[in-house]
Design a protein around this nucleic acid. Structure first.
Length: 401
RNA sequence: GUGACUGUAGCUCAAUUGGUUAGAGCACCGGACUGUGGCUCCGGGGGUUGCGGGUUCAAUUCCCGUCAGUCACCCCA
């Protein structure tokens, strides 16, 4: 007995598929506004593509197996390695900056929970070959314009922005040793959902100076000026760049600066981020992150490809759809036919079929009752189907049909 | 992988401290009625109560296991 899809996988009935299509066409439409062009890659990749970047422990999170040719393979859990390979292979031939997007279905082997399944569709938007914060600003603005396209406002969603370099410089200014940075990142990443005293305890365990612990626990509330006042040299330049970034995003959003919020507690799990990183959240804090991304300038080189600066973001369909439904903004429904053709019960079915054929050849979407029925019955069926127009063949039509 | 809670029809739920043939609304199908925007009435299909054991004269109800779901942890593209 087959009952339901595999755990963490979804059946898309027509209504759900309509919603998915609505989300994906909106993604595509906004991405094109920003002159990103679409690409795709294989859903199945060599396992090594992921272990080389993330180490063997990642295998536990992957849908992987050995194929009939004895190859270790995995369903793609993310798009970045694939696109990095594709760009690297033609790095010299591609016009820079490369502005690409994709909407792959991604897979992850782990127990499902709210907003996180074993399979989802994710918009990936990336820029390769630009090291200026203008590129970072384009990404953030694009993500925000997607929110706008769905009818969401800055009262619904906030973009929390951080910068790996600023964070590192700030932590250094507090006396945090480089050896502790990674551990401190992990604590900071969990600040929002961890009691302060627990975070403080973890920080002390990492040999963070006592006076720095209190500062780090409240790191999310820092303003750019407060951070800037502690920095000198190249770090101070980073702060200036960050200010320019914020200005660019506001301009790209038509002068609206209400979306972005500096928040150094935004770390992003991935170690490969090197600069500005950001995440989109619903303001109420009810859902997981809607979107996340940032700059990963050294990733392409580390994967053995071209040494191109790179940045990008990913936005999954699961959390976004949950949010849209909660806000009453999921504007998707199954489309009915253009026209429903009815006829008296005594009319031969072939007359209706002939009319349907004529209209279908003309490009119309046509439905009709597949057996003779009373007109009232047909009318009800037509209404239930959502057909936009209801036409009744007269007996004259039928004869001419 | 760990833990907590949950599991009756497609959906939302019901079934008196364990007690006859597990019910209802919605949905679906059929029919009737109404010359109109999904009205009303009649009828119908659909459940080995997630699955497998156990206790009992008797289990939807109690116990164990398993599977699945929800939430959290781990992890986070």
């Amino acid at each position: 007995m087959f009952k339901g899809a595999l755990p963490g996988f979804r059946d898309f009935y027509p209504q759900e598929l309509a919603e998915r299509a609505y989300v994906m066409t909106t993604w595509r439409e906004v991405a094109r506004r920003y002159a990103f062009v679409e690409y795709d890659g294989p859903p199945l990749e060599p396992l090594e593509l992921y272990t080389r970047k993330s180490g063997d422990e990642i295998v536990g999170q992957l849908y992987n197996f050995v194929d009939k040719g004895d190859r270790e393979v995995a369903l793609r859990p993310e798009m970045t390695p694939t696109v990095a390979r594709m760009v690297a292979a033609r790095a010299n031939a591609l016009r820079k900056p490369v502005r690409w997007f994709s909407m792959p279905q991604l897979f992850r082997y782990e127990r499902q929970q709210k907003g996180r399944l074993r399979e989802h569709f994710q918009l990936n938007v990336d820029i390769f070959g630009s090291s200026d914060v203008a590129a970072d600003a384009e990404l953030a603005a694009c993500a925000v314009d997607i929110m706008r396209a769905f009818g969401l406002t800055s009262r619904d969603v906030v973009v929390r922005v951080s910068d790996r370099r600023l964070l590192h410089a700030y932590l250094s200014s507090l006396g945090v040793p480089d050896s502790a940075i990674e551990g401190v990142h992990q604590v900071i990443d969990k600040l929002q959902r961890t009691p302060h005293d627990v975070s403080a305890e973890r920080l002390r365990a990492l040999d963070v100076p006592a006076e720095a612990v209190e500062q780090i626990v409240h790191i999310a509330e820092l303003t750019l000026d407060e951070i800037r006042s502690r920095l000198t040299g190249s770090a101070a330049e980073n702060a200036e760049e960050f200010a320019r970034y914020m200005e660019y995003v506001a301009v790209l959003l038509g002068g609206d600066d209400s979306w972005l919020s500096l928040d150094l507690s935004i770390v992003r799990g991935l170690a490969y981020y090197t600069g500005i990183v950001f995440e989109l959240f619903d303001r109420s804090g009810e859902f997981r992150a809607i979107c996340g991304g940032g700059r990963y300038d050294s990733l392409l080189a580390s994967l053995g490809g071209a040494d191109l600066p790179a940045l990008g973001f990913g936005m999954g369909d699961v959390v976004l759809s949950e949010l849209l439904r909660a806000k009453g903004l999921m504007r998707a429904s199954v489309a009915g036919a253009d026209v429903w053709i009815a006829a008296e019960e005594s009319t031969p079915l072939t007359a209706v079929m002939a009319e349907a054929a004529r209209r279908r050849a003309d490009g119309q979407s046509v439905e009709y009752a597949l057996r003779p029925q009373s007109l009232s019955k047909q009318k009800k069926a037509a209404q239930a189907s959502g057909a936009r127009e209801f036409v009744t063949l007269s007996n004259t039509d039928a004869r001419h049909g």
